[in-house]
Amino acid sequence: MSDRLTHLTVHPHLWRASYKTSSENKARIPSGFTLLDSALGGGWPQAGLIRLRTLQGIGEVELFLTLLQHMCHPHLLVFINPPGRIQASWLIKYKIEPDDVVFLTGTHEQNLWAAEQCLKNDACQIVLVWSGQPLSLTQARRLQVNAKQHQSVCILFEYQHVLRQSLPLELDLSLIREQAAVTLNIEKQLGGWPRVGLQLTYSPIPSNNSILSAFTRYAQTYSKHEQVS
């Protein structure tokens, strides 16, 4: 009996609740946040459909920075229906070659068709999709299957106003930000337990602190150490 069980436990699509022995965890890409990596079993998955429910402009793309940097050159990094024009200076700041990036916008159906084409094509390993409307079950399944089959990643960004649907995903996340820190919930992940309230501190913007502190420190007109030449 035990041999049949052992045969099952080794099967890639079966997990024991208590620990992860599934083969892909070694293929995970560390996110740079230790708390998150341990929750995800090593880091971001290299294949499958990931959903992130978020607000616009809270560092939602920067969250996946290590994944983007890893999956990029010489393959294409495709932005589908991004919320604004992509600034090449942001890409160069994070060592991503603008020539490896393509962005496109079309109707909802065209976007999904394009996402599928990219996942299927060997020239592209990662696709970021913004959707203003919820995906249907079949649409999500097609993306998940294509991504898994061609070892590529598709990240779906859904904004709050989009009605939440449960979908067959590799990883289901949601994100909110207060000041300099964000709270990330892992709603569901294939092969792992959901985790809620992960606190990550990173800030995608420069700050005036150095200027403000200079004003406080050098407010007085007499200077402590007189300089006499």
Binding site: V61, R85, I86, Q87, P204, P206
Partner: peptide
């Protein structure tokens, strides 16, 4: 490289 630029610009 202007480091203060955002990722997305509204046209």
């Amino acid at each position: 490289i202007p480091h203060w630029h955002p990722l997305f610009i509204a046209t």
